[in-house]
Design a protein around this nucleic acid. Structure first.
Length: 472
RNA sequence: GGGACGUUCGUCUAGCGGUUUAGGACAUCGCUCUCUCAAGGCGAUAACGCGGGUUCGAAUCCCGCACGUCCCA
């Protein structure tokens, strides 16, 4: 919205709650926003650094007679609240300290009480919020009380500090989750007290978890990192999130540029949305298919390490060309970067994860014999490319009175460890002659080794290949 | 306890009184393709929270109720 209207996107940390305010939480938030490509225009502001300003603005309201000192203790207030609730009354401040005599004030001060500052609000009347999404929402003044703007320890309350900030930062549009709609009348009262025009408010729907409970905002950055680590692309997450509570015809896929161009508050609808991971995977799949293979290849590197396929140094050493080729080869059946990295495992390493069920079903002694013979037939194929391999394989099988169906799955398991994957001959070409021959040859050892119970993965190294090659 | 907001397929949504046998997307399930798995193509299942009104006509307007969420805390 800010980009579309050539405004400034200001990042502000509302960290007046000194107990919950932990400096180590800041960097992850900045990092998550950077990763998403949501780049702010000014250095972030911290409310915790602006207490002097809030105090100054609060004192001004006091001087102008718009706010007053309240000496009531939390215990007294709690007591009143309980009594009100017991009497089925609305628990709001009774205005006790609105008109204190000098004498009473002296007495409180001599007792060592420190005053809080409360805003004097109109006793009656309607406060209307003109919400850009929900239309006019009216609140009766009698529902509100003289709320605290500055606590007795000098800390501002949320409603006060945000309004001071919005005024001093010349904020024109307040777009936020609808949990704040009920705070808005109080804030409007503050704008009026400051003689400052009320900005445009727009309360957007919340995003809820699957069980309709609220997604914790304190875990926002963590959640972003979680998706990043699960191989989600930033543009996919932004695209998916943008379509929650907002739509533009039947369109589902939006580039960031398109979002800037097409977003409008009028098209935001008011009801809450549930976060559906399945659809996020689908959006991500789209961006994996259409993204630049070179870029995706680079993004793959950290996952090669995370998935224990190789060391950091080895991952760095894989040529970008090869990574890009792997992306192109595997992307069709991959929804995430993790899928891509995992798919490429049998190409980049010899550390193959053989699926036990697949070995049991397809690497029977009879099939293994056939594979060994096939390896010999393929050893002379030149070039070692898909079309030639297919021709040679089919010819050989025909000579043996067999069909491709008889051997394809066994062959795939021997080469990749899996029953599912890309075309067999394309896979052979990708793996390369040496490894294909070796893996077909050593299929018998896979049975031998995995016939035992509980064998989930077989790990073998180049030494094994060399030995087998020698025997060959 | 009071107040505010919300309620269309399982999910995201279109719809802003008649063009609606309620449209699209994700998911699900078929079919197709086939060496497997995907992808793609084709198709299917599936929704207006409930009850009153207004109107010739309501998912669309009004009222009540229920449920959910938020605020006062």
């Amino acid at each position: 919205f800010a980009r579309k209207h050539k405004g400034a996107f200001i990042l502000r940390f509302e960290d007046t709650d000194t107990e919950r305010n932990r400096p180590e939480l800041i960097e992850p938030i900045l990092e998550s926003l950077r990763w998403l490509g949501l780049l702010w225009d000014e250095w972030p502001y911290f409310q915790s650094h602006r207490f002097a300003l809030y105090r100054e603005w609060a004192e001004r309201l006091f001087t102008e007679g718009k706010a007053y000192k309240c000496y009531c203790t939390p215990e007294e207030l709690e007591e009143k609240r309980k009594r009100a609730l017991a009497a089925q009354q609305k628990p709001k401040y009774d205005g006790r300290c609105r008109s204190l005599t000098a004498q009473e004030e002296q007495r409180f001060l001599s007792e060592g009480r420190r005053p809080a500052l409360r805003l004097k609000i109109p006793q009656s009347g309607i406060i209307a919020v003109e919400d850009a999404i929900r239309g006019r929402v009216e609140f009766d003044s009698s529902e509100l009380d003289d709320f605290i703007i500055l606590r007795s320890d000098g800390r501002p309350t949320y409603n006060f500090s945000v309004v001071v900030d919005d005024v001093t930062m010349n904020i024109t549009h307040v777009i936020r989750a609808d949990e704040h709609l009920n705070n808005t009348p109080k804030q409007i009262l503050l704008y009026r007290a400051f003689n400052y025009p009320v900005p445009i408010f727009a309360h957007v729907p919340m995003v809820l978890a699957k069980d309709r409970s609220k997604l914790s905002k304190r875990h926002g950055a963590t959640a972003v990192f979680e998706f990043r680590d699960r191989g989600i692309l930033p543009e996919a997450l932004v695209n998916y999130l943008a379509r929650l509570g907002w739509s533009h015809g039947d369109q589902e896929i939006f580039s960031t540029e398109e979002l800037i161009e097409k977003f409008s508050l009028e098209a935001v609808h008011p009801s809450a949305a549930i976060f559906d991971e399945e659809k996020l995977w689908w959006v991500n799949h789209h961006y994996i298919q259409t993204g630049d293979p070179k870029r995706l290849g680079e993004l793959l590197r950290p996952f090669l390490v995370k998935l224990n396929m190789m060391s950091e140094a080895e991952a760095q050493a894989v040529p970008n060309e090869q990574l890009a080729d792997l992306v192109t080869f595997f992307k069709e059946r991959c929804r995430t970067l993790v899928d891509l990295a995992e798919a490429a495992r049998y190409v980049l390493t010899d550390n193959i994860a053989y699926e036990p069920a697949a070995v049991k079903k397809f690497l029977t002694p009879e099939k293994v014999e056939l594979l060994r013979a096939l390896a010999e037939a393929l050893a002379s194929v030149t070039p070692f490319a898909a079309a030639e391999l297919e021709r040679a394989t089919r010819a050989y099988l025909e000579s043996q009175g067999k069909t491709l169906k008889d051997v394809a799955q066994s062959c795939r398991v021997a080469l990749t460890g899996k029953t599912a994957g890309a075309g067999l001959f394309e896979t052979m070409e990708l793996i390369g002659k040496t490894k294909v021959i070796a893996r077909l040859q050593r299929a018998s050892t896979v049975i031998g080794e995995s016939s035992g119970e509980g064998v989930i993965q077989r790990h073998f190294t180049m030494e094994h290949y060399n030995t087998r090659m020698h025997l060959l």
